[in-house]
Write a protein that binds this DNA or RNA. Structure first.
Lengths: 187, 187
DNA sequence: CTCAATTCTTTACAAATGATAAGAAATCAG
DNA sequence: CTGATTTCTTATCATTTGTAAAGAATTGAG
């Protein structure tokens, strides 16, 4: 879990006791390509850190598979709208490559907050950063053209084309695969 | 500041000392209709609670005024992407009605977090709830039709039509005023 | 490797949305 | 109240995006 704690250090450095407490509620899981890490319909009670591989959050709208977000190695992924509301999630998490993740049991994590204010602060800052990313994405979806959104995505994740099928990228951008093909075709 | 603390109680009940500390860094401001509470370009260092009135966060994209979000009485409003990143915001906050707000000085607030874990927890929960709303808005912008987004808005804010000009609602929905007129016209 | 399944592109057409302009309606300043 | 300004609607036309279908390219299972 070295890279997990290196990731944490960016936000808030934990005491050794706090690290031990987090280790005690975390497990390492290997997941095959295309396998669901979390199925649609369950309440989110796990926060994942991606050691190796690539995940997406997805859901269905009118029977069409829509990718809400991607997460790469050294990133956190969780279905926030379920985690913080306690409601079942209509979304699932699927791994797009053979992956290894650290699964942090969220209910246990939250109950560590009283004894370890440093842990509460750490996750506060992690989710504040996630909140900022999400607000910026709103701006992108609200008034940028599909082509702008595509170019912005390539800039922020240059290797995404090599790792993610275009049809998943299309729904992430809020357009159809055909529309994405058109955008790519016009040089 | 009664309604502010009633709002806080929904998330985390504060000790009297904590309340006093928050009162010490907060001021009540009256703002005229259409006046900017915060201009574009400044780094966000204030969190506002709306006692009375109505605000929007806005920015310009290609010289077009775009409303990112609205906030009504008994809600918090802040330019999160600046508040949590420390970067200047390209967005401003404008009041759409004669309003009264409680201005909480954010830098001072954050420095209360060490002495008052209850305050840190309170704002953690408030912003977690804001994060959830924002994630849900992504879903709406990503694959709901403009008409669906309009109907959803009317459902969640039934009085918005009486309080907000349609051109601001249009950009909030990610469409032009002409397009919104069309949607409204078709019954 | 080989064949089947999936993904991607292209084409043609339909639907939704944008841009522009003009007039109607509502709002605001004096 | 009155005239000027702003907002809203309507109409027309252009552009973008969606839908459906077909074929090419790629991927994957055996």
């Amino acid at each position: 879990m070295t890279s997990l704690f290196r990731y944490f250090d960016q936000y808030n450095i934990l005491s050794e006791e706090a690290r031990t407490a987090i280790r005690a509620i975390s497990t390492i899981q290997a997941i095959r390509k295309n396998q669901d890490l979390q199925p649609i319909g369950h309440t989110c009670r796990t926060i994942y850190f991606i050691n190796r591989g690539l995940a997406r959050i997805y859901y269905f709208k009118d029977d069409i598979d829509i990718t809400e977000s991607f997460a790469f190695e050294n990133q956190i992924i969780a279905r926030v709208e379920s985690l913080f509301s306690g409601k079942p999630s209509r979304k699932g998490i699927q791994m797009l490559e053979p992956s290894e993740v650290v699964a942090i049991h969220a209910t246990s994590l939250f109950s560590l907050y009283d004894a370890f204010p440093d842990i509460e602060r750490l996750f506060r800052k992690i989710f504040e950063a996630g909140y900022v990313d999400t607000v910026n994405r709103i701006e992108s979806l609200q008034f940028h053209s599909a082509e702008e959104r595509y170019r912005d995505l390539l800039e922020s994740s240059p290797d995404i084309l090599k790792r993610v099928p275009l049809k998943l990228i299309a729904s992430y951008l809020g357009i159809t695969p055909v529309s994405l093909s058109r955008i790519r075709a016009q040089h």
